[in-house]
Nucleic acid binder design. Sequence first.
DNA 1: GTCTATAATCGGATAGAC
DNA 2: GTCTATCCGATTATAGAC
Lengths: 190, 190
Amino acid sequence: MNVINTSVRRKELTRLAAQLFVQEGFDRTTVRMLAQEMGIKSGSLFHHFKDKQEILAAVIEEGMQNALTIARQSIEHCSSDPEARLRAMARAHLETLFTDRNAHVVALFEWRRLDPVASAHLSHLRDAYEALWVQVIDDALEAQLIRGDRFLVSRFILGALNWTVRWYDPSGPRTPDDLADELVAMIMAH
Amino acid sequence: MNVINTSVRRKELTRLAAQLFVQEGFDRTTVRMLAQEMGIKSGSLFHHFKDKQEILAAVIEEGMQNALTIARQSIEHCSSDPEARLRAMARAHLETLFTDRNAHVVALFEWRRLDPVASAHLSHLRDAYEALWVQVIDDALEAQLIRGDRFLVSRFILGALNWTVRWYDPSGPRTPDDLADELVAMIMAH
DNA sequence: GTCTATAATCGGATAGAC
DNA sequence: GTCTATCCGATTATAGAC
């Protein structure tokens, strides 16, 4: 019935793949490395996934799905206050990047490696997630919490958040929530 | 005498390599592609560079050198005013990313692909560039132009700027300078 | 400095037995 | 569902002639 294979086994394998993709990058991760991490031989891997591309697509779908779910849950809890919603979105973004870990990072940094068909198939998820952001940003702009062009502001905020992957050390003194709060504080026109 | 080969021929080849590295990514750029772009056969390439790694190091050194030079020139022109200096740094950053193009982008996005020796050898350039930023940010903080932790603020600003590579279209209506100005406006506590 | 030719290795992917 | 064995194209890099 389902076009998409969602068995728990495949989920587990996808999780392991995400880990390697973040560590090494998609291009440098070989099917042999993936298989070893999964405790099987490289030939067996192709019983679960058609090819390497399909693994990437699975990871990225998982990452965007996660990001969407967590973000939606987070802003539900504070539906009225624009400032709380903005902070919640930033926190949710960093939560899926660092707490849940890996899949969302792959979605952000390896999207270009998707073949055109997979990219087209998954773009609605990315669009839905960005729409969530633009909505929250619009509310914040209307409440005069922040200033600027809705499009640019969301790009800048997401850029600042995404780039944390390159420098932030979760084992350091600051929590992801600290980062999110500090970013929001920085741009607020209080 | 010189440890580093700085012939104009090598500079030209480095420029072409940078272009391909941005388009395809370092891992997916083959020496055959590089050679073809340079109008020679792949075997001849190794007369100019010891190996593929050395090409990457050359590109990244060029990119950081460019960024440093342009940034220093830009803030010299406005040595007194903290706001002008901040704006100048942001403009310079986007100028080396989009106007000069390629080499600085490679430095930012492919740094991880450097082998440890090359990375250690080039890190002083990256550190010098970041120090320039922290200095400008410190001045802006002291003048109460912006608020926050000096370390985090510079990371967030650089993240927002770096991520533009992923979405900004230079052939669109906005100039890189527009972007820089809008980012500065967004974070200013006027 | 560039060429041709090729070595040596590694990559994704398949076939067929169990 | 996993294994072994293997195909075969692609990749980095070298050797030696011109």
